[in-house]
Design a protein around this nucleic acid. Structure first.
Lengths: 126, 126
DNA sequence: CTGCATCCTTCTCGATACTG
DNA sequence: CAGTATCGAGAAGGATGCAG
C-alpha cells in the first residue's frame, strides 16, 4: 500500500502563508537584531547603528523601513536642524518578541546539540 | 538578567550566535516547510517532494541534507533496488517545533494586523 | 543627522541533464 | 527512486557619494 500519495499538508499552501510572511521579515540579516536593540527603548538612527556596529547605513535604513511598513516599529521625525529621527517598538512589535523569545531560548538551550550533530555528521561523512 | 545579552551585538566574530544559527537554517525557503511536513510521520524523498509540490529536487535534497546535518531529521537508507530513503524528525527536530509553533500561532493571529499596517503605510506614503 | 541612489560582488535557487 | 553537477538569472548586501 502506497500511502505516500495521500499526504496532505493542511495550511502551508494557502495564500499568503502567514508564517512565511513573518519569517521572510525576521529571517533576514538584521530585523531581529534591530527589534532586540529597540526593546531597550526609543533610539535614534545613529544610536541603532552604533549598537549593532557592523550594519551599513543602507541596510539599516532599508530594514527599519520594512519593519515600519509591517507595523513592528514606529518612526518619529522631529523637523529640527539637523533632523532627529527616533524609532520605537509598537505594541505589535513587542508582542512579537514574546513568542520569539521562546525560540531564542530554545536556540540557546539546544545550540550545543546542533553543533554536536554537525560534528558527528562530519565525522560520519568521512 | 539577560538584558545585557540583547544589546551586546559585537559577537559577530565569535562563535555563531545561537539564534542566528537557527534562523539561518529555518529562515530559508524550505526548511520549516519540510519540518512541518515530516511532523506527519516518516516519509520518503518523493513523498516529501509531492507534499510540498513546488520545490525542486535539488533544493529538497540540499535542505534535507542541512536538516540532517543539524540533527533535526534522521535519514535512513534501505539498500534495496530501487533504493528507498526515509526521513523522519529526531527528538531535537520535534522539540524545535514546540516554540516554533508558538511563533506560527502568533503569525496566524497577527497576520491581518501586519497586512493592515502595510496597507496603511502605503496609503500614507502617497 | 538621516537616508536614498548607484555600482558591484556574492549568494541563492530553479532548470536541466546525468549517475548509481 | 534518490540524488548530484552545471549553468544562469536574480536577489541580497556592502561601499561610496549625494541630497534634504
Amino acid at each position: 500500500m502506497d500511502q505516500d500519495n495521500l499526504i496532505a499538508i493542511p495550511f502551508v499552501f494557502e495564500q499568503p502563508c502567514p508564517i512565511r510572511d513573518v519569517l521572510d521579515r525576521i529571517g533576514d540579516q538584521w530585523s531581529l537584531l534591530i527589534l532586540q536593540v529597540l526593546e531597550h527603548g526609543t533610539m535614534r538612527f545613529s544610536a541603532i547603528n552604533r549598537a549593532i556596529g557592523d550594519i551599513s547605513k543602507q541596510m539599516l535604513s532599508k530594514t527599519l523601513k520594512s519593519l515600519e511598513e509591517d507595523g513592528f516599529i514606529r518612526r518619529t521625525l522631529y523637523p529640527e536642524v539637523p533632523p532627529r529621527v527616533e524609532y520605537e517598538l509598537t505594541d505589535l512589535g513587542r508582542s512579537f518578541l514574546v513568542p520569539m523569545k521562546e525560540l531564542i531560548a530554545w536556540a540557546d538551550e539546544h545550540h550545543r546539540a546542533i553543533c554536536e550533530a554537525r560534528a558527528s555528521y562530519l565525522a560520519n561523512a568521512k
